[in-house]
Amino acid sequence: MVPISWYLIWAAALFSIGLFGVLSRKNAVAILMGVELMLNAVNINLVAFWRYLDVRAIAGQAFAVMVFAVAAAEVAVGLALVISVYRRRQTVAADEIDLLKW
């Protein structure tokens, strides 16, 4: 049997890799990919705890499904923004999109 700590550590690894991607990639699409990795890490944790605690309490799965919806919404709007910005500024580098800093 796989102990739950294995799942948690794997999820932690995916989360950290995603965090690194979000913090240090230039390309805005790559940043969104990092966010996807982080959301998936969360999902692994939710499902693992659902399975190792009480399977009759369905909260873990219900939350995981909600995370799917949130991830889809985030990708749809995020990529739409990226495409829109690209069409105006011809760039997808996140550190060049700094108009709001002024």
């Binding site: 799917f68 919806a69 889809a72 749809a76 495409i83």
Partner: peptide
């Protein structure tokens, strides 16, 4: 053209809602 993205976008939203 951006039309391809829009179809993919509508598909994504429908896809997620259908699995619910």
């Amino acid at each position: 053209k951006v039309q391809y993205y829009i179809y993919a976008l509508i598909f994504l939203v429908f896809d997620v809602e259908i699995i619910f």
